[in-house]
Amino acid sequence: MANTFSRRRFIGSLLYLTALLFSGILLFRSYRSYRAGLDFSTLIARSRARWRYDDPLDATELRCLQQYIDVLAPDDDSPGALKVGVDQRIIAKSSDDPDYRQTLRQGILRINPLAQNKFGCPFHQLTADQVHEIILISEQAKRYSSERLLFDRLREDTFSYYYVAPESWQSLCYQGPPQPVGFSGYQQPLESCDQS
């Protein structure tokens, strides 16, 4: 009888301690999220994102990507990234590579509350100047934070796909690709675009 009572008490205490520990973890994570500026809906969205690993990016996520890419390499005297199809290449890459897609998704989930906190609307509704500010924050974020990973990936890929487009070469005076013509004037200085 005494043994049964002890076992009950032991199991009860174990359950109590487990519940206490679980609550502690929840509290700590909520505090950490609060410090990081994440609201409840973002936390839910982040949890859901884990379950959406195999899903393609949705329309809002794609819009966010395009906003971001457009500011990384915008139109000026030469066409910007969207005009040469950089977004389409990045979207295609995200379709083929679920880890890459997840990096983009997690980053977008992070910049949305940043936009909300700073400008009172989600990222995809920001103006170009406002997007610029959010990208600046992402660039300066901690090295492995979601928003920094998003920045690093998109900077790398936007420039990769933008500067393989011959439209982007004109303003650099670059007359590539290297073949089939080569660079016969290689011994001479570059005086004008015609000689490059």
Binding site: V164, C173, Y174
Partner: peptide, 28 residues
């Protein structure tokens, strides 16, 4: 370091309009 992609990623810092302008000043 013989093409625009690596210039954009490794040589010229930043992004946006300033990056594009710096690429023009730096390439080569």
């Amino acid at each position: 370091l013989a093409g625009p992609v690596n210039y954009a990623k490794r040589v010229v810092a930043g992004w946006g309009l300033a990056h594009k302008q710096k690429m023009r000043e730096t390439f080569g």
